[in-house]
Design a protein around this nucleic acid. Sequence first.
DNA 1: ATTGGTGCAAAGGATTTGCAGTCTA
DNA 2: TAGACTGCAAATCCTTTGCACCAAT
Lengths: 142, 142
Amino acid sequence: MNTLNITFPLGRSDVVSMLQHFKISPTRQRVEIAEFLFQRPQHLSAEKIHTGVTGEGNRVSRATVYNTMGLFSSKGVVREILIDRERVFYDSNTEVHQHLYNVDSGELTDVYDAEVDMVSEPELPEGLRIIDTDIVFKVTSR
Amino acid sequence: MNTLNITFPLGRSDVVSMLQHFKISPTRQRVEIAEFLFQRPQHLSAEKIHTGVTGEGNRVSRATVYNTMGLFSSKGVVREILIDRERVFYDSNTEVHQHLYNVDSGELTDVYDAEVDMVSEPELPEGLRIIDTDIVFKVTSR
DNA sequence: ATTGGTGCAAAGGATTTGCAGTCTA
DNA sequence: TAGACTGCAAATCCTTTGCACCAAT
């Protein structure tokens, strides 16, 4: 996966070059969405993104948020996380890392423990290649 | 996680004792659903389960399928898999294993490579314990 | 002009919920 | 009889889609 080293937060010009790096034309809406996403590493739902971006005084439709996040995911700008039954989360943290999901609270946090990287890849059928490895530790306090 | 060694397929009496083992009262619907699930290790959506069970001549409502699968998941009878944006899958394979998800076809297959088990667990905040570790390798043929 | 991008509202579809009826201890 | 369970249909709510308008090359 084509990732970048990011120093949060990213300013407007950083965001623009990032989008160009991923061959995405930096329209106003996309830049505003990306700026919001890369203020810090975070896990956001489409709705949160929409609220956040419009809350900053920008005008972006819900449909465009979905379009844009679909585009960003497919290009590798963000990572799609499917953990919560309710909705999709988008992870603005592009570093290699894993997730801790608290099933009681729904809270999702990052894990960086180096040892996890030792996971060896499975035998793959001909012609297939791994594009992403998702590791989620489900935890409870009960 | 409280798992059992299962030899597929499970017959009605096996299913009944399994449910009792998990402290689930074996109603007619639950037994029929479990029988369908444990014919073989498989990944099924709620809709597929409903179609399959009623197709065998049993009468179970969609709501009961959802109720039952929620109950089975919470008790550890099956494992919930959230990979497909569209719907939840339930895994009747309770052995420790990982998944290969073909993003092109949506196909989900099991992985048993022993090496993957070497994954070490992350440092956990006080009072939390891991109840499940999900590892998904996303693959493509493109 | 053509292509790509956006916005709005409606549609779609999986899952949940309310509630009445049913079974069972 | 109480409590657990089920079924039906309506409601919910995230996400997608159809389509008209706008922007940029």
